[in-house]
Design a binder for these strands. Sequence first.
DNA 1: CGATTTTTGGCAAACGTTTGCTATAAAGCA
DNA 2: TGCTTTATAGCAAACGTTTGCCAAAAATCG
Lengths: 356, 356
Amino acid sequence: MSKNKDVPGEEQSGPLMADVARLAGVAISTVSRALANPGRVNEKTRAKIDAAAKQLGYTPNAMARGLRVGKSNIIMIILPGSLHYGASQIIPQVLQSINKSLIQGGHNLMIANLDRDETSERHILDLAFGGTVRGAIILSSKLPEVDGRSLANAGLPIVSMLLDMSDAGLPSVVTNDREAVREVTAELIRLGHRRFLYIAGPEGNYHDVERYGGVIEALDQAGLPAEAVSRSGGNLDYQHGFEIGIQAAGDFARLTEKPTAVIATSDDMAISFVSCVQRTGLSIPSDLSVVSFDGSPVCEFCSPPLSTIEQPVEEMGQAAVALLLDAIGRTEKELTTRTVIRSKLILRESMAAPKS
Amino acid sequence: MSKNKDVPGEEQSGPLMADVARLAGVAISTVSRALANPGRVNEKTRAKIDAAAKQLGYTPNAMARGLRVGKSNIIMIILPGSLHYGASQIIPQVLQSINKSLIQGGHNLMIANLDRDETSERHILDLAFGGTVRGAIILSSKLPEVDGRSLANAGLPIVSMLLDMSDAGLPSVVTNDREAVREVTAELIRLGHRRFLYIAGPEGNYHDVERYGGVIEALDQAGLPAEAVSRSGGNLDYQHGFEIGIQAAGDFARLTEKPTAVIATSDDMAISFVSCVQRTGLSIPSDLSVVSFDGSPVCEFCSPPLSTIEQPVEEMGQAAVALLLDAIGRTEKELTTRTVIRSKLILRESMAAPKS
DNA sequence: CGATTTTTGGCAAACGTTTGCTATAAAGCA
DNA sequence: TGCTTTATAGCAAACGTTTGCCAAAAATCG
């Protein structure tokens, strides 16, 4: 009850609501209402209580409150594997943006990294079913699920980000991958390019499907055949962008009919690809145009500066949080929406008309 | 008590320990002991209880447990400002490493980003004093403190990482900044360099003091005067590495006696510096050697590939978690330690002997 | 076979809040 | 003034665990 227990070795437990109540000369329940409810308590009493709380340095115990009201204010973010990529800041930016938005609404962000192992999944499910978290933002296409329990049945609001999972019933915030790639491909065609190399992420992945689809659509619209584009990559995850780019450089070297433009699905791929290809004596953009996806700041300082499609990560994070908080607020079944935020092409020297 | 409340609109609350007990035909307390304590309950009963729990998909409520035992299993990480830098993956790597280590010990990671504003600080203090978190890892030199409450008095174990705060009584995990820079400077001197440009982070910052100190020590040991090195930067945070590098390129252009080697205190700085300086016609490393700090993967793909001092982030994270968990385990006052993990110089083409 | 020790299971009291309900005080009205 | 209505404060029961303590049962021993 009192600030310091009698037992000297005890854990420091801090002042309790009871202490505040005693100091202010009111009942505990009044303190509770004064600190939370708006108009439920007389202004004078409230002032007295506020003063007492401040004097004692009182901080309400989050777990006790959480237990009582049956909710926490913690949101977890489920990430696909690694947090760190080659040079991309996508994930950190997402975290930053989400955390910022969450804190404004009085929520907290917990990281629940989704490695491929069962331990991790079980961990995430414990968080969900154990009432630790109130909602989830997921950046992976795979919902954790292990022996009977699935995140889908945890009764938690979930929103997907970066990947469109509205088919699976999750409200999703994505960028216009397909359209953006279509447009940049069209631009390359307009510049005179007729043969392309597409550097893929993991095959079948949402981003890959969309972005490659964008390329094909652009070719189609220009009356070019689908064979105008060669594919490289497809077996590694986006986290291994540098390796993918290196492999792609190898693939490029082996092609008999050389493409004059390269569309990489991540900046990391483009960076290592360019590095390798320049070493073989090729010059960019005169021999080869390059454009990639993500909008990593470092692209500006590459030689030559790389054109890139910037993902609106900040806005996507905000939107995801807004959606989630909204779903938490309402009691009805959340309606599955799909929010698209347009990405932005940043044109730099790596794109030019082909030589001949 | 039962899986679904009678009231239809109620929150889904999941099976309770009481449900498991009923199904297994034992008392609640026995279930609790069966699931947690090792040898306190008969093997046969335990099996029965485990089966019942599995059948119901029971997950213990973390807040109830936390309230009862007076501890949470959440660790917060306090970051200095932005999560995303230019191309550096230091912070993401730290997060990843810490999260991984924590999960192994059954803990969770919560992000508590330390912006410079009071809201953020109050938030962090609420987390600490409200019993939400059990410990903290801090990557900032500034302990949150606002109207009376200070993180230092929260009774929480705290360990500092990257920055040495053992003076302030915090166990710290750092790398050998000073020594590493001293050695690389010595190497540059050995190569024949006699005039240097040092690109600084925020002045007075631990890293800056240490790294600059390393340069001076090396000069001293070689019998060179401290004037052999010019300083650039000092007013911006490490997050703005690219800008610092650009400014440094401007400073460099204005120097009458040109240095032949540049020591940048982050890869970001080196990258933008190199980019700018190359545009003025200078060639690296023949005109100018460059080395920087961090070990960003992207350095390998710069032209020329950049030498960099790799921070052992993974190990530092592990060490920090080990220290923290240790402090949580013991009841005695934590002893302030300083753990140094050696960084590793990665030599690449950006360093060579000066021309003349 | 009775007495003593050890194992095992159950009761009930915490943990620190919130909140439904009730009691009191204040205010409005005739 | 006496009655009804409204604002305000307090009591006590939750929330779902863990755990000290005691009782019953089982095992050990003389």
